[in-house]
Amino acid sequence: MQEFGRSGAVALGLVTGLDSDLLAIVALSLQVSLSAVAMAALIGLPLGAAAAVGRFPGRRPLIVLLNAFMGLPPVVVGLVIYLLLSRAGPLGHLGILFTPAAMILAQTVLIVPIIAALSRQVIEDAWVEYGEQLRSLGSGPARSGFTLLWDTRFSLLTVILAGLGRASAEVGAVMIVGGNIDGVTRVMTTTIALETSKGDLPLALALGIVLITLVFALNASAYLIKEAVQRRHG
């Protein structure tokens, strides 16, 4: 118990001291995870909508695949992206291994299935309610998909937050494709792993507290905004 108290104090010190290394690491973590979530949403939401309202061959296997891939092991994703981006790999010429771009790519791959599978469920439920009306209005499947994406936006915000949670919590993928390079690809989770390796458990736990607080703050503000807007729109 004593260790938790000590870590709490260290965490407080880190935050109040506005340690510049820590700020840079936090900024990079946010930059990587938020970019990955934005890209994953751009890909995953239309994919989820298509799987929900589309009628095309391979739809059922796609849904099963998306559901299964919600649990993709980050280490495996990291390894696959590493092999792709490695100089000896097919995308080696891009030269982005061990850069934030590689980390964004890995996290995007990791959370596209989460956003697609969960939004598929949300939109399919809405489709049950809206389907006949939209068809009656003359709305085709593609148009209906986008209409439902907008109409379920409050539920989809939770879906996106689930993606953000996964992105900001994972360490396996960014460690491998980012390399945990000091000042370049070191993010919160890889720093925590490193400090744990060094045996500085209080510092590692303190960084964990900062990370959890950050994720909590992001979720809380998203929730409050959603509440306020939803009250107006029903």
């Binding site: 809206y130 009306q133 068809r135 009656s136 209005l137 209409t147 109409d151 409050f154 729109h233």
Partner: peptide
């Protein structure tokens, strides 16, 4: 063409706008 028809359902389905 469904474009010349319209239908009103028992429970109105309205969009969130």
């Amino acid at each position: 063409s469904i474009a010349r028809q319209a239908m009103v359902f028992q429970r109105p389905v309205l969009l969130r706008r």
